[in-house]
């Protein structure tokens, strides 16, 4: 028995070591990113990447803000993220309410139509949207990014809200109905307040994808004043492909830190959201 116990302990220890090694490999590139942002240029050019910075400097951050439009990029990303999230949450709740609470004859068909958006890759919409935007003057606006970002995220949002509304017992509504509340009041006073947890999850998960969106921004936005963070970062590739790496990495750090902090603080809710959203989808 004790031999067996010993073997189990060895197994446990090996297991722990393996997990630790894998996590280090997985996270090291990120640690390296932050360390590089704090190095002097000479240190970066000459030293071993596995060493700690010889001296810590914040010059890179100063240069990062001088070179690019980081502040403006962040504002644009905030505007797009907020705009798209409002649409995703509000319209997602409305559709789920119609499908799950009100109910109607063709709801199976409507569900199937929304399912299309989960399966279909976004690339199919790039050319048509570009042409449509050009003809109505929407190219190069915040809306040109918000519309497809929200549109393609809407099905998953509807799905998550529907799954949640499904479990709200019918008596909750019946009681309100007897008091004379119509569908609008029930939505505002019962369904919406109950949805808050789901809203948090949906906003967290979608914010990652919206904040980081590259393909729609790169296709529909041309002027510097409207560039979001992913596009703004590209400005750090200088003429002839020369890159001021330490400053660029400082800029990258500035742009990924907000989302990483939110994630580290709220990771329970976010992990739960990703797990439930994916495992059911």
């Amino acid at each position: 028995m004790s031999a067996r116990r010993q073997r189990l302990d060895v197994h446990r220890a090996l297991n722990t070591v393996a997990v630790a090694l894998i996590v280090i490999v997985q996270v090291y590139p990120l640690a390296w990113l932050f360390l590089t942002a704090l190095r002097t240029e000479q240190d970066f050019a000459s030293s071993n990447p596995f060493s700690l910075p010889g001296e810590v400097t914040l010059d890179n951050f100063a240069r990062a803000f001088e070179t690019g439009n980081l502040g403006l990029n962040i504002l644009n990303s905030l505007a797009v993220t907020m705009g798209a999230n409002v649409l995703i949450v509000l319209l997602g709740m409305m559709a789920a309410y119609a499908l799950e609470v009100l109910g109607f004859r063709l709801r199976g068909a409507v569900r199937a139509i929304f399912l299309v958006g989960i399966i279909v890759p976004v690339q199919i919409a790039l050319v048509p949207l570009f042409i449509d935007y050009a003809s109505v003057g929407l190219l190069d606006t915040h809306a040109s990014m918000i519309v497809p970002l929200a549109g393609f995220a809407l099905p998953m949002s509807i799905y998550l809200f529907s799954a949640f509304y499904h479990y709200i017992p019918g008596e909750t509504y019946e009681a309100a109905s007897l008091d004379g509340a119509g569908p609008y009041r029930i939505f505002g006073q019962i369904t919406f307040p109950l949805s808050l947890n789901t809203i948090v999850t949906i906003v967290l998960v979608n914010s990652i994808f919206i904040w980081n969106d590259f393909i729609f921004a790169n296709t529909f936005v041309l002027s510097d004043g409207l560039k979001t963070i992913p596009l703004g970062l590209q400005n750090y590739i200088g003429a002839m492909g020369n890159v001021d790496w330490t400053a660029t990495f400082a800029a990258v750090c500035v742009t990924i830190t907000p989302l990483m902090l939110v994630f580290l603080v709220l990771n329970k809710a976010m992990i739960q959201g990703l797990e439930s959203g994916a495992a059911k989808g």
């Binding site: 990120l30 980081n212 963070i229 992913p230 596009l231 742009t255």
Partner: peptide, 9 residues
């Protein structure tokens, strides 16, 4: 953690 970072970064 890497899933939180933009593709450009």
């Amino acid at each position: 953690l890497p899933a939180v970072i933009s593709t450009v970064a």
